[in-house]
């Protein structure tokens, strides 16, 4: 049984590539909550991006990471729901299906590795609610953000498919809302909350991807949210990087900052905005910060 306050940090690819604000704020928050993060000894992509072209390659890449983590005897913590979803799914599949495990292990053996099925993988949101607990988080809040009215965006891979993820209700997710409310902020309901951000369609059909993101921003604007809170690097890129482009393309005005949940929680814990990498956000968040201070 691995510890609940010590994890192996699995960064994924998108975060070191261009979403460091999520990593910076997540590490600050976890440190304050007394959680120790150990680095992966070596890294490869979780495998998800290659599932469409080779399911087998995805399975091997995911299993390779699980095998490396097993050697360390620690549960994996990810910031990316895509990584969490993939590692969880493959972990479950290999634990339950002996024939598949033997097949995948025959590939891992080429590099001297073996999947044994001794650890778990969790997304930071799941770790916060299940391992660290709401009480501890609430106790760490020293500056309740009672002036904040925000909306949440879970993204797909933290919720679906339910069979493999299964810690929240995909049709009516509550975890992120509960975690937002723990900071003192109000979390507003809006239309089509569980809808996809469109990021996976970028590069295949940018037009469809941007229309999906536009729909979401329209719905968030409609309820008067001051910010949209995400827990996925891809959803964050989709909204934060493209908000200006969508405004121009479709003649809309939003001005809605896109915050990583860990930035919001960090603020409520009394960590300064500059330590939480607010300056890295493309959509200016200074207005909402002023209101909160």
């Amino acid at each position: 049984m691995a510890e609940k306050n010590k994890y192996l940090m699995f960064l994924g690819c998108a975060i070191p590539y261009r979403v460091s604000a999520f990593e910076i704020s997540a590490r600050k928050v976890m440190q304050k909550l007394g959680v120790e993060l150990v680095e992966m000894p070596e890294f490869n992509c979780c495998g998800l991006p290659l599932d469409p072209v080779s399911h087998e390659m995805m399975l091997i890449l995911a299993a390779r990471n699980l095998a490396l983590a097993e050697q360390k005897g620690l549960n994996i913590l990810t910031l990316c729901p895509g990584c969490a979803g993939t590692l969880k799914k493959v972990n479950k599949m290999l634990k339950e299906d002996k024939a598949l495990r033997e097949d995948i292990n025959s590939h891992l053996k080429e590099a001297g590795l073996e999947f044994k099925g001794t650890i778990e993988a969790k997304h930071i949101m799941q770790a916060l609610i299940e391992d660290i607990g709401l009480e501890k988080i609430k106790n760490a809040v020293v500056k309740p953000l009672t002036a904040f009215k925000v909306a949440e965006h879970n993204g797909c891979h933290i919720l679906r498919p339910k069979e493999y993820i299964g810690f929240d209700d995909p049709e009516d997710p509550k975890t992120l809302k509960t975690l937002i409310e723990a900071t003192g902020a109000t979390c507003l309901d809006y239309m089509d909350e569980t809808e996809c951000c469109g990021a996976p369609s970028v590069g295949i059909s940018d037009k469809i991807a941007l229309q999906l993101a536009r729909d979401k921003l329209n719905h968030v604007k409609m309820v008067g949210a001051q910010a949209l809170v995400t827990i996925c690097p891809f959803c964050h890129i989709m909204y934060d990087t493209n908000e200006l482009r969508i405004e121009k393309m479709f003649n809309e005005t939003y001005g809605i900052p896109i915050l990583h949940y860990t930035q919001l929680l960090g603020l409520a814990m009394g960590i300064l905005p500059e330590e939480l990498a607010f300056n890295e956000l493309r959509v200016d968040a200074s207005k909402i910060l002023k209101e909160a201070m």
């Binding site: 469409p52 797909c156 679906r160 498919p161 339910k162 996809c196 469109g198 996976p200 369609s201």
Partner: peptide, 12 residues
């Protein structure tokens, strides 16, 4: 075939 965003709404 390549337009699917893998959101898994259909699966669920």
């Amino acid at each position: 075939l390549w337009l699917c965003a893998s959101c898994f709404t259909c699966t669920d």
